[in-house]
Design a protein around this nucleic acid. Structure first.
Lengths: 347, 347
DNA sequence: AGCTTTTCAGAAAAGCTTTTCTACATTCTA
DNA sequence: TAGAATGTAGAAAAGCTTTTCTGAAAAGCT
């Protein structure tokens, strides 16, 4: 079942069928066109994209490389990529790396072999240098999300600023012992968040205490155990800022399990603003990231690059602190919590 | 940069390069092989999968069709598909439908044109008949997840049984007014869960009250508003069973916002066992689905079909009720809650 | 040494599409 | 009416790989 069968059935040549299907070349005579269309319909012909791509040297396919689709921030992003890709007739190949360098390299090879037109790399953490060399050598456009210092256009949020703001929010509430649960420190985005946190403390004249910094892995369990150990430790923090919402929610669970009230006894702030952040109780104060939009922007970047247009080296997208109920003033120095009054009191 | 360049550089013929690369045909003499491999290395040659697929008539590509990647149950499933696919050298094209029939049809066309070897359709809800006709007409293997009554092998869990079990759990705790927040009723899986719920009530001699059944859309917001209206309604339930965890967590938030204790005043049970179900407080009692395994099984099914092996029409996977802290006995008839004692009391 | 068998390599076709170039009708112009 | 211009169609090449078939060289046998 190929274009030849269609041509035969319509009593025209292969070229004519192709011209009808692609609306290319000179305009085909209406009745001929009609015959072709009918033949296509009757035979249920689907042009072979392999042969097409082979000839045209583009496949309308992009790869989306993601560290961990299980982290609810990434599906959002993937959706942004998929929606704008499919809106432009592109398909996306889903590549999950589990933050393993070899899986990244594997997928780069795969995408190169499949002659993908573009590749979007989200997150990161793994060493990029070998990969970026390869990508530059081949005819494939690349964009990265959430990473800078790379030879590709990127979509970014201001991690330093956002972490600074979140930390400042806590300082302004009166907190002085503010813990930070980071993600994997190998990630530049995590380093940036850590720097923002430290900078906020420094500017407010709060002495840095590295016993209050723990390295997590973005999984809720790591937030849980870090918070548990912080809250039972010798320098008990009155607030915890976690580098993502899943760890923050883990931290909330730890506080709960230790019988501590949030935010009366510990404030907790997250990062990402995943859907669940709004539905957890108390609702999580967090930094809201435009996940969908980041994916969509990256895909738009790729589309531009493919069509040979200029495109900005860095696209900055806004992150915004959204204050909900998990952050409040610290307990008084005697340790007694300041209770909130108002609408959310028990009936 | 193609196989011809490699052949030239290695001083051999194209055929020999192909044989070396694919380990096919007769064994190539070691030194010739060495020369070819060196040439490949030096030139950074990547065989063109389009040309390959064109000839071989298989692409080592499968499509994964998902209703809503934003629902945390699906990333799990996608991961299962991706991991087993990539383990066998397959790539997966990510297709998000938003439960729209036309997007499903669009993606089927795309996959057909790309000559994907297989297609995995998860969830569903949209009418399948046009699509299943097309799929049978073409040379593509198909498997479905979470749907039966379809002319393709499927991976299933026993939705009726699982909902029955969850409801029974609540009945056994002493609940009689048990509400059900469903997903979209067009989904067979949702109908099954509803039937399981009803069957459990029937068997226990509890009269069915359809005022306690609300149709949600699997989003937390719908769980929140359904629960809110139920808990403020005239026939206030003592327990709520939601058709997925996101709605259950929404329901928990509603209870909290109404100043009601979970589980002392309302028990809440979910479905899916997403990661957050364990970290929400109180931890959510829910039906645990093997999301990853369902994805992996479906992919294995496809692999079997591709290699021409027989494969079971239906693969049943176990769902299991996991009882956590969001379900307990109903409040006494005077309305006063039964409080739990023990480890979770405040320090 | 002369023959058969084995080992290894290359030529060429096939797989399906797009596109350029050639060619035939038809219509218009002088 | 002869010729040019225009409109429409087909033939064929190119894009890259796999695989079959043919063939040459090396090895084995009597």
């Amino acid at each position: 079942m190929n274009i030849r069968d269609v041509a035969q059935r319509a009593g025209v040549s292969i070229s004519t069928v192709s011209r009808v299907l692609n609306d290319t070349g000179y305009p085909v005579k209406p009745e001929t066109r009609q015959r072709v269309l009918e033949a296509v319909e009757e035979l249920g012909f689907r042009p072979n994209d392999l042969a097409r791509g082979l000839h045209l040297k583009r496949t309308r396919t992009v790869g989306l490389v993601i560290p961990d689709i299980t982290n609810p921030y990434y599906p959002e992003l993937a959706l942004g990529v998929e929606a704008t890709a499919s809106g432009e007739g592109y398909s996306v190949i889903f590549c999950n790396t589990n933050r393993r360098a070899e899986k990244l390299e594997h997928y780069v090879d795969v995408l190169l072999q499949k002659r993908a037109d573009g590749i979007i790399i989200a997150g990161g953490g793994t060493d990029f240098s070998p990969v970026s060399q390869v990508l530059s050598d081949f005819d494939i456009e690349a964009a990265v999300i959430g990473r800078h210092n790379l030879p590709f256009p990127s979509v970014q949020i201001d991690n330093v600023g956002a972490a600074y703001e979140a930390t400042s929010h806590l300082v302004e509430l009166g907190h002085e012992r503010i813990a930070f649960i980071s993600g994997p420190l190998s990630l530049t985005s995590v380093q940036d968040r850590l720097n923002g946190y430290r900078e906020a403390l420094r500017r407010r004249g709060i002495e840095r205490d590295d016993r209050l910094v723990r390295e997590g892995d973005f999984q809720p369990e790591s937030g849980y155990s870090a918070a548990r150990s912080l809250l039972q430790g010798s320098v008990r923090p009155t607030a915890i800022f976690a580098a993502n919402d899943r760890m923050a929610i883990g931290a909330m669970a730890a506080a709960f399990d230790l019988g501590m009230e949030v935010p009366e006894e510990v404030s907790i702030v997250g990062f990402d603003d995943i859907t669940m952040a709004s539905y957890v109780r108390p609702a999580l104060t967090t930094v809201s990231l435009p996940g969908y939009e980041m994916g969509a922007s990256a895909m738009r970047l790729i589309l531009k690059l493919i069509s040979g247009k200029e495109c900005p080296r860095v696209t900055w997208l806004p992150a915004e602190l959204v204050v909900r109920d998990s952050s409040g003033p610290p307990p008084r120095s005697d340790g007694s919590p300041i209770r909130k009054g108002g609408v959310e009191d028990k009936i």
